[in-house]
Write a protein that binds this DNA or RNA. Structure first.
Lengths: 129, 129
DNA sequence: CTTTATACCTCGTATAACTATATATAGTGC
DNA sequence: GCACTATATATAGTTATACGAGGTATAAAG
């Protein structure tokens, strides 16, 4: 097993704030990943990593999925895999779809507000495009 | 004094997630509010409330300002007001400007990723515009 | 001198995500 | 049939963050 620990010492906080940007968006992203069909846990992680900037650990996504399920936002079903461990597939419920729509709306509004705020800051960088 | 405590029981979570969307963006917003010139604490709150969706409490902004100051991102100076309590004006340092640019860049990238993820969700709502 | 308005500050608490680790299933080599 | 490995789900403990409630300070108004 080779514990290895690494223990990053967290003395450096070069991207401390970058991690914070993600907070709160993770739940919405998890719901969004299921919009087009059911996925299982690790699949959600891979999907979000490929489709957006969200690189989530397993210890992050499973508690969120369980919470969302407890709140009735999604359902789960075990599916036998042809090889390896069986997979628990998650699907959005109607309540989940509705909540996601509300969250997306709030996100869009919030995102626009912040973008407006950052316009003067970003302008200096966008010499191109 | 009637401590009162209130203890909101937090049984209702109608906008629990909405508050979470803001996390991590607050520090960036605080820096951004100072981009065009110095402001004092309450002024920052009012500015952000009028310019974006961010309604911050005093208990939120003051610890952040102190932290940013301790990190060398901004400076402060007391200024006598013509009436009432003196005001502590905050200004961005060069390091603060640089950090804000980096944060804005990361935010933009992250925001685009999430928006892309939410496109299928939002499309159904945007019948107009 | 009390009240009101403005402004700054801090403590305690609840919440959320992440790190590290544990558990479960099944295929592979011997 | 037993270790070893890969895949997958799960959770306990830590840390970071925002916020609500209260407190302090200054000065004008009554």
């Amino acid at each position: 097993m080779a514990i290895q620990r690494a223990l990053p010492a967290e003395g450096d906080q070069p991207d401390r704030w970058e991690a914070q940007l993600r907070k709160g968006a993770v739940e919405m992203a998890a719901l969004a990943s299921l919009w087009q069909g059911r996925l299982y846990g690790l699949e959600i992680i891979r999907f979000l990593e490929s489709q957006s900037q969200l690189a989530l650990a397993e210890g992050t996504i499973y508690p969120i999925l369980n919470r969302l399920k407890a709140e009735g936002m999604l359902t789960s079903e075990w599916v036998e895999a042809e090889a390896g461990h069986p997979r628990k597939y998650y699907s959005l419920t109607d309540a989940g779809r509705q909540r996601l729509r509300q969250m997306a709306e709030a996100w869009t509004s919030f995102s626009r507000g912040l973008s407006r705020l950052l316009e003067p800051v970003v302008q200096q960088q966008e010499k191109t495009q």
